[in-house]
């Protein structure tokens, strides 16, 4: 189907974009359009004013330094995936983006758009929570910064208020000696995950020191696996996998059922992914 009529603008500055967003109650930001335009084509989303931010000055940048990487709201996923930044800085984004859609989707889709969209099965919100990302927002009342942990409220629902715009997101560099692994179960390469895991793991001397574990596709928002984070400390490859898997099961009791999988299947899947991630982190640490 085709979208219903709307008015379109393509502002040059953040101030102009905010003004246009404030001009109507059903105004929307258009970034990559890879989630919004399908919803408009289906007439699931009602838009009166569409504010295309792709030509706003300065929003397409990807800046890396030792502290981390800052991705502007108009920077495409392909741009970030191809960025030459060091593995310790953009490694997590690279690992996540490999699972996002297909080449043609990533060529338009943005990192910030995925956060704003907040699909419960999306990789980037989970990565943002796992890595302690900070989302920079501009709105009618000025600018504010929101920790990823406070940003996701429910499925397709974030802390963004009406008339607010994400201008950029900052992903801090990973702790030294750690690796970020993004793994998932999906029906077909490039499809949204049935369930998945982002694991930032620090390992040395044959054992896991600490890890940040965040599941996705389990509930309405990225799911921090805190029992498993405690259980994984000191875990070594010859330890029983069950201790880790049981901890994940305890963390995921609320996982949902749908046509693609039962709650139980999702929990088992993330438990298996957690064991796999721990083993891989240990192998990577040994090879390093």
């Amino acid at each position: 189907m085709k979208p219903a009529p709307f008015d379109y603008c393509r502002p040059a500055t953040v101030a102009e974009a905010l003004e246009a967003l404030g001009s109507s109650e059903s105004s929307r930001v258009l970034a990559g359009g890879q989630s919004l335009i399908p919803a408009m084509n289906f007439r699931l989303t009602d838009v009166s004013v569409l504010v295309d931010i792709n030509r706003v000055d300065g929003l397409a940048s990807v800046d890396c330094d030792l502290g981390g990487v800052t991705v502007g709201a108009a920077a495409t996923q392909t741009r970030v995936l191809e960025h030459e930044g060091a593995a310790g800085v953009v490694g997590g984004l690279r690992a996540a983006l490999r699972h996002v859609g297909h080449l043609q989707i990533r060529n338009r889709g943005t990192v910030c758009g995925s956060l704003a969209h907040a699909d419960p099965a999306a990789e980037l919100p989970a990565l943002a929570v796992a890595s302690g990302a900070v989302i920079a927002v501009s709105g009618p009342d000025g600018e504010r910064r929101i920790d990823a942990a406070d940003f996701f409220i429910g499925p397709f629902w974030t802390a963004l208020e009406d008339g607010e715009l994400i201008t950029e997101v900052h992903f801090p560099a990973q702790p030294p000696g750690s690796v970020t692994i993004v793994d998932e179960i999906s029906r077909r390469a490039g499809d949204f995950a049935v369930a998945g895991l982002v694991a930032t793991v620090q390992a040395d001397g044959g054992a896991v020191r600490s890890a940040r574990l965040v599941g996705f596709g389990l509930g309405g928002v990225p799911t921090r696996l805190e029992t498993a984070e405690a259980a994984i400390e000191g875990w070594a490859a010859d330890h029983p996998a069950d201790t880790l898997a049981e901890a994940v099961m305890a963390d995921t009791a609320d996982a949902f059922d749908d046509i693609h999988a039962t709650s139980w299947y999702r929990r088992e899947a993330v438990a298996a992914l957690t064991v796999r991630a721990a083993r891989q982190a240990l192998a990577d640490a040994e090879a390093a």
Partner: peptide
């Protein structure tokens, strides 16, 4: 750039090497 929201947009684009110029509804895919 277009600062004010409008319902019809002027498009100048090259398609397969040929310049094209049209005024199109904003909602045209």
């Amino acid at each position: 750039t277009i600062s004010e929201p409008i319902s019809e947009v002027d498009v100048e684009v090259t398609v397969n090497g040929q310049p094209q110029r049209h005024r199109v509804p904003a909602r045209l895919l």
